[in-house]
Amino acid sequence: MAVSTSQASAPETATREIFMSEALREAIDEEMTRDPTVFVVGEEVGVWGGAYAVTQGMLEKWGPDRIVDTPIAEAAIAGLGIGAALTGSRPIAEFMYSDFMGIAMDQIVNQAAKNRYMFGGKAKLPLTYRAPFGAGTGNAAQHTQSLEAWFAHVPGLKVITASTPYDAKGLLKSAIREDNVVIMFEHKAIYAMRGHVPEGEYLVPIGVADVKREGDDVSVITYARQTHHALEAAEQLAAEGISVEVVDIRSLYPLDTDTILRSVRKTHRAVVLYEAVRFGGFGAEIASQIQELAFDDLDAPVLRVGAAHAPVPFSEPLEVASFPDTAQVVEAIRQSLQGVY
């Protein structure tokens, strides 16, 4: 099996393009085939096929003992995952929207994250939580949040997120095989994005960032959907002779600080880009690591680009302006280059 860390290093022969949602389905399907203790549990994962169609057709294939529909009961879904994992199963528990994890916060934060530690290392939780996140869908304040920093802050949880179908599949497979609690945040706006996914099996390791575009002048450190805004900004600025490197961290915890520092030591400038509320968001952790560990390499302050200090508004002109777009990333890169803030 190929363990590859980058889309660039995937087998040359495979040119198949599939949706992110299909890539995730393949990951689940392959791991269910590989390990009979893997099962899916969540709201509308069966008959409906998943709110974002990730588990479409899986109830028909696997039956109700492996694709388990639940009532609306997020605390129970989180707990079902914990209990089953503690006793020998390898559950994949889905939250229909990451916003609803608020209802399950005790089970995730006080139980799942801490059981192993509190029990002196005696417990093992091979548990994956999946949750759609992010804005841009017109679904207003309670269905669009980016809350990943809440979870990355809690020791005992691993937190991952993908920007491409390739990474999504490889990361989710790694998560399912992990003996730790992994939360995979899936950006809603890119479920329908197509991308190259080879036929054969591969894993993307958790805790390894990926340089999605190489460049010399500025590093943009980002993840999930914002990676695409960074890539678009890089493309636009290339026309002006500005060379932008785009680092997709892929994993918030553990964080691949080495790859981030390597990039910043090369470009000497960093823009940290994320879709969550800018204040107190995960980008603050990245920015802080950079200035602590690469202060002497920096030619400009580390900039953060994030969402407005507000719940996500419904109305389209407000919603689209409330979180970063390509134009804002371009602007931030220029600011970093000019040293004008």
Partner: peptide, 16 residues
């Protein structure tokens, strides 16, 4: 319609 004259000034939409 997401307009300023709506009950929530367009910030909430149908669900709020």
């Amino acid at each position: 319609f997401g307009r300023t004259t709506g009950y929530c000034g367009g910030k909430g939409g149908s669900m709020h």
